[in-house]
Design a protein around this nucleic acid. Sequence first.
DNA 1: ATGAAGGGGA
Length: 460
Amino acid sequence: MQRIKDKLSTRLMNVCVASLCKAKQLEKAEIVIVDGIRIGLQPDVVTYNTLIAAYCRFVGIDAGYSILNRMKDAGINPDVITYNALIAGATRYSLLSKCLDLFDEMLEMRILPDIWSYNTLMNCFFKFGKPDEAYRVFQDVLLKDISVHSATFNILINGLCMNGYSENALMLFRSLKRHGFIPQLVTYNILIHGLCKSGRGNVAREFLNELVESGHIPNAITYTTVMKCCFRYRQFEEGFKIFAEMRNKGYTYDAFAYCTVASMLLKTGRITEANEYLGYIITSGFTLDIVSFNTVFNLYCKEGQLDNAYKLLYEAENGGLESDKFTHAIWIDGLCRTGNFQEAQQQLNRMSVTGFDSNLVAWNSFLNGLCKTGQLDYATHIFESMDTKDSVTYSTIVRGLCQARRFRAASKLLLSCIRGGMRILKSDKRIVIDGLRSCGLTHEARKVQSKIQMAKLLHY
DNA sequence: ATGAAGGGGA
């Protein structure tokens, strides 16, 4: 009788712990457990699994591990859910090898992975840009005759989109529907997001219609996704309309929509308006996470208020917010805008020395700053010393050279890009060709044009 | 008790 009572009470405690964890109230959850122990309740595997998931989500993977140790010390064996939570945690913090180690560890402990484990592993591979490996996991699931979940398909569709296979994702979606799969709201959100990201805004809009027609009610995520899609395709009025609708529906309960609008405004140089939206975020008491912080930080940097920006950063870091590579890139851009190129370069060098991943966007930003202020030799020097470059790097230099009317150098670089299969914007090619013509280098211009044509024929 | 969707940098 007493045992049954204890079991019931432990279950009650677990419900309590779960709801506190969900609300990010980890200290309170711990207090509930301590109180439980005081009145004779033993935390069980569910209690610890709840804690591990929450610590992984809100604190970090190491915090999750320390709960795992506490669990083992208490004599409770981890189960498949424990490992699933840890693997999901490792995925969240981009630790691929840790994910794989945990999976192996689970097998070694003779804990049978379930569909959740496979889903998590698949998602992990997709996140790391390894769609082939992810697909192998999926085939493994089919081979082992484990019954799949709708989440399995959602992860597949999302992973395919994020790895540049939106066409395959579409085919999968259609074929699943033919086989009786009923897409959920999240499935549509994934598709709309993926299609928009891969430059297929029109198809994304069709799915928005299909979503509504099949009886789903778009949520805040649907709205922010579609709004960003509008801004991306320069349909600003349409985007603002969506924002207004979100407000009316009560969907602006967090900072997401505000950040979407504000960053678009910052990108298009409408700083005063951005200020209004971000002012609302600050005064209305949303807790600033790193993303909304970076948006506000970007506002100060774009306004040239570097002192205020720095003060903001200092306060945020004292409050426990950890800056990231976005913060750093924004700061580099701010320094360049205010002419502090030396400081910018020192910051960039310090980053690579201290073993951080080299921040390509920050370097590109630096190059952009140098080009805009006509320091082409400096820019070229930096360009040559960079060991990773992308199409933005090349575009920036090509545009910079054109601006300095060094069209021959620009065309030489452009041609080397084309030879290397680098995607360069049509408008940038145009600038080079028009520039060559404008200084009477018509022969050169024609040569570049024909090489571009040739590349097109070869590539497509 | 676990997995999938929205916002930030050139």
